[in-house]
């Protein structure tokens, strides 16, 4: 199918881009376009104008920044997946981004675009949430930091304001002793996750000292499995971990769609959290 008409601008700076977006509430930012283009082709969206930020050097690249990794909004999935900085500093991001869509889409699709799209079925939002990433929003007024917990507001809705673009994401590095796993459950390789679990786990003497768990597609936004995280603190691998992971779906409101009903998603969240935690803990 064919997109409806829109205007197109390619600003030369972030400030100019923000100005374009601020002056027209129906304008949309275009980065890689891998989420936006299918929407436009199916005429599910009618932006007045696309503001092409895809060439803004300020938003590119992956940067080592001491206690965190800064991933520019325009870093492609492929770039992030192969980045030594990411693989060393925040391996969970590398594990998850490798499972986003397919190779061709990963070449064009951007890290920032995927997060700003705020699709709870996407793989990256739950990861950002689990790692307490900090989102850097740029506007004409300058930059603003948004903690991950406040970034995802509702289904396909972030807390970015009109005139703001996502400039990059700071992923705090976790110290030694942490293990990671992203468990994606989908019916075919191309299909969206029915449920996904992003787990970061710190082990200490055969038990779990600390766990952070983000859930994909278990509600209108990505969610943290707070109850399971609490129950996992101090849990020994084995039955204790299993019981703790049974709390994974507590408080979630998973969607009903073609591929799964809420009760099945809750069940999956429990099983997959167990698997993700065990894998992250290096226990297979």
């Amino acid at each position: 199918m064919i997109p409806a008409q829109f205007d197109y601008v390619r600003p030369g700076s972030v400030a100019e881009a923000c100005r374009e977006l601020a002056s027209d509430e129906d304008a949309k930012a275009l980065a890689g376009g891998q989420s936006l283009l299918p929407f436009l082709r199916l005429r599910l969206a009618y932006p007045s104008k696309l503001v092409d930020i895809g060439r803004l050097a300020e938003l590119k690249g992956v940067h080592e920044r001491g206690d965190h990794v800064h991933i520019g909004a325009l870093a492609t999935h492929d770039e992030v997946m192969r980045s030594p900085v990411v693989n060393a500093g925040c391996p969970l991001v590398a594990l998850a981004v490798a499972q986003v869509a397919d190779p061709a889409i990963r070449h064009r699709g951007t890290f920032g675009g995927s997060l700003a799209h705020a699709d709870p079925a996407g793989d990256l939002p739950a990861v950002a949430l689990a790692l307490d990433a900090v989102f850097v929003a740029a506007s004409e007024q300058g930059e603003r930091e948004i903690p991950a917990a406040a970034f995802f507001v509702d289904y396909l809705e972030s807390s970015l304001r009109q005139g703001e673009i996502l400039a990059g994401v700071r992923i705090p590095k976790l110290g030694a002793g942490w293990g990671f796993h992203y468990e994606k459950f989908h019916r075919t390789a191309q299909a969206w996750a029915i449920v996904g679990v992003a787990a970061a786990v710190r082990r200490s003497n055969g038990s779990i000292a600390e766990a952070r768990i983000g859930l994909t597609n278990m509600g209108p936004t990505p969610v943290r499995a707070h109850a399971a995280e609490a129950a996992l603190r101090g849990a020994e691998l084995g039955d204790q971990v299993r019981r703790a992971c049974a709390e994974a779906a507590a408080g979630t409101a998973p969607p009903a769609d073609l591929h799964a009903q809420p009760d099945y998603r809750r069940h999956l969240a429990e099983v997959l959290t167990g698997r993700a935690v065990r894998a992250a803990a290096g226990a297979g």
């Binding site: 275009l30 376009g33 891998q34 283009l37 299918p38 397919d102 061709a104 889409i105 070449h107």
Partner: peptide, 25 residues
């Protein structure tokens, strides 16, 4: 029209891309 099938894949600056999901501009 959803970038699933990949029939339109070309090399764009040396990397595969689905040309149905890229604007000419």
């Amino acid at each position: 029209d959803t970038s699933n099938c990949g029939a339109c894949t070309v090399m764009l600056d040396g990397k595969s891309a689905k040309s149905c999901s890229v604007l000419a501009v």
